[in-house]
Design a protein around this nucleic acid. Structure first.
Length: 562
RNA sequence: CGGGGCGUGGCGCAACCUGGUAGCGCGCUUGGUUCGGGACCAAGAGGUCAUGGGUUCGAAUCCCGUCGCCCCGACCA
């Protein structure tokens, strides 16, 4: 491809609206342009990257027996009404009416359509298992699109669905996907973790997410490097490090104006881990006191799973129940059910005295107050792994894929049944599996770039070789470059030929920005001594070889390490 | 949806506070010189200052509304 005839609008400066590295670079390198919040145009170069990624996904899906289909973007409301999601999902679903005022929606995912199809076409256990997949645009009216292509309202998704006759079959399909996904992300050159995830509204028995670590990611994962424990922070557990407990006796201490844990612990000169943080919440059943250790944070999702809907208590409610301001409430002598984090079962602490300006030192949970214990805290870097006790690290990551065991959540309402060997009708057991190709591209950039631009893994690079002529108006130089271009193409190598009439500096800068793995430069030495330069983008390593060897050297390079 | 910020030639920004009719860099066009890491000279094109209303002799500038975009939070099937 000749750059002079191709649309690659590169930018010298970062776009004002971009924050994430991948966002800046994708715009600067001419991969994408934003049409509206969270809605993007993929320019030719971006499109090529997406096609590379999709091709890898297709290969791996086909390899596990996946069959590609294409399902509609527009769905009739009835389908979603039958599973109840029409009502469960709020503003995030794009809804519209057709000319006959019939309710429709834009597909945010395709479980309903798959279950519908299965209900029509799957009759017998002999038809199972099945894996159907598509690479299709999804529409979700995200409350807050962000980070360029990482969180958009319209996005491409590879989604697949497994149909099995029983749990064992689902386990097999799930495992096939897990392996296929690992191969996909490995082939795309990503660093990633497979983590346990919260099945959430998808419902069902089990779920994992594929997480590519990056500061731009909006998820957090807790990772144990020794035993391999890996979980989304939404359900990650940890063993908090134990502080050295002093031998306090129970007494009231004045803590004037110390409302926060930091204030109390610094005023008393103690480790925040020796305090108890008391939080009053109001549930369906009334108020409840939640306790976590002072150096911990309450995990609201975990609490929600334990007690259902809740809200923080209002100031006046706190005052009324505890006789004290929010900063001074505590578990002693309070007439409320108490739910405490498990790590508080051991030790002696400072807690609020339910009296303004005072705390109580020497509080021993179990002895001085009764509580129900549960895991309520957010896992943090440096704490112990729940499995092996070694140090956990918590890091940000981009969710590039997920796999869910759905079970019969969709097959029952949509009557996706089959007849088993005994002739009895049973609901199909489903699984649902997604990959975000654009997120793979963005994650690859997040993980592979330097100050000058992108450094594509060769598997998903838009081109393999960036051929650059230093001066197009020099006939000999141009001629040699043309020769090389033809020869490289003839050898099946994808080459972007920068034949623009630009200054060399501009072309070199653009080459670094685009990040194509190998750059071949035809310059003054080419015409003087017949030498061309072959440079590896990632390492900056450069060799000078005779023109005749150029193609073979490039091929050798592409075959080897990047 | 709550909090904050921004909206000025294609891009990045200044002018706004203290009203007087818009400027810089990059890019773009033409000509010339240049050509191995974002060249130089000369000439040029391009802006209803997001939008609607108000205040004023006069509004990019002050006031109110609306829309759009970004960031933090909530949400995220």
């Amino acid at each position: 491809m000749r750059w002079s005839k191709y649309l690659i609008p590169t930018l010298k400066e970062d776009p004002a609206e971009a924050e994430a590295v991948s966002h800046k670079l994708m715009v600067r390198a001419g991969l994408v342009r934003m049409l509206a919040a969270g809605i993007y145009v993929y320019l030719p170069l971006g499109q090529r990257v997406m096609e590379k990624i999709n091709a890898i996904i297709r290969e791996e899906m086909n390899r596990i027996g996946g069959q590609e289909v294409t399902m509609p973007v527009i769905h009739p409301a009835e389908l979603w009404q039958q599973t109840g999601r029409w009502y469960d999902i709020g503003d995030e679903m794009f809804r519209l009416k057709d000319r006959n005022k019939r309710d429709m929606c834009l597909g945010m995912t395709h479980e309903e359509v798959v279950a519908w199809l299965a209900s029509k076409e799957v009759r017998s256990y002999r038809n199972l298992p099945q894996i159907w997949y598509q690479i299709q645009t999804k529409e979700r009216d995200e409350a807050r699109p962000k980070s360029g292509v990482l969180r958009t309202r319209e996005f491409l998704m590879k989604d697949s669905y497994s149909l099995d006759m029983d749990e064992a079959g689902l386990d097999r399909s799930y495992e096939l996907h897990r392996e296929a996904y690992c191969r996909v992300f490995e082939r795309c050159g990503l660093r990633f973790y497979v983590v346990e995830s919260d099945p959430g509204m998808m419902g069902g028995a089990g779920a994992h997410e594929f997480m590519a670590p990056s500061p731009a990611g909006e998820d957090e994962v807790a990772i144990c490097s020794s035993c391999g424990y890996a979980a989304n922070i939404e359900l990650a557990c940890s063993q908090p490090n134990k502080p050295a407990f002093p031998s306090w006796r129970l007494e009231e201490v004045a803590t004037p104006d110390c409302r926060t844990i930091e204030q109390v612990s610094s005023y008393l000169g103690i480790d925040p881990g020796l305090t108890i943080k008391s939080l009053m919440v109001v549930t369906q059943e009334g108020p409840l006191l939640c306790l976590v250790r002072g150096d911990q944070r309450l995990h609201e999702k975990k609490l929600f799973r334990l007690i259902g809907e809740f809200r923080p208590a209002h100031r006046d409610e706190i005052k009324k129940i505890s006789q004290a301001e929010a900063g001074f409430i505590g578990p002693l002598g309070i007439d409320l059910p108490i739910l405490a984090d498990s790590c508080l079962q051991e030790g002696v602490y400072v807690a609020g005295a339910n009296k303004d300006g005072y705390h109580i030192r020497g509080v021993i949970p179990g002895q001085h107050f009764k509580a129900r214990y549960a895991d309520l805290h957010l896992a943090q870097t440096g704490e112990g792994c729940p499995k092996c006790g070694n140090t956990l690290t918590v890091e940000c990551a981009i969710e590039v894929g997920n796999i869910f065991k759905l079970g019969i959540k969709y097959s029952v309402p949509l009557k996706a049944h089959f007849l088993d060997e005994k002739g009895e009708a049973r609901p199909i057991i489903m699984g649902s599996y997604g990959i975000g190709p654009a997120r793979i591209a963005a994650a690859a950039i997040e993980q592979n770039h330097d100050a000058n631009g992108i450094i594509w893994p060769k598997s998903i690079a838009p081109f393999q070789v960036h051929l650059l002529v230093v001066n197009v108006s020099d006939p000999k130089m141009r001629e040699m470059a043309e020769r090389l271009y033809e020869e490289l193409c003839r050898n099946g190598i994808e080459v972007l030929f920068d034949d623009r009439d630009e200054r060399p500096g501009v072309k070199f800068k653009d080459a670094d920005l685009l990040g194509i793995p190998i750059r071949v430069t035809v310059g003054t030495l080419a015409i003087k001594e017949g030498l061309v330069d072959i440079r590896v983008r990632r390492t900056g390593e450069e060799v000078r070889v005779p023109e005749g060897e150029g193609v073979n050297r490039v091929k050798a390079r592409l075959g080897g390490v990047m």
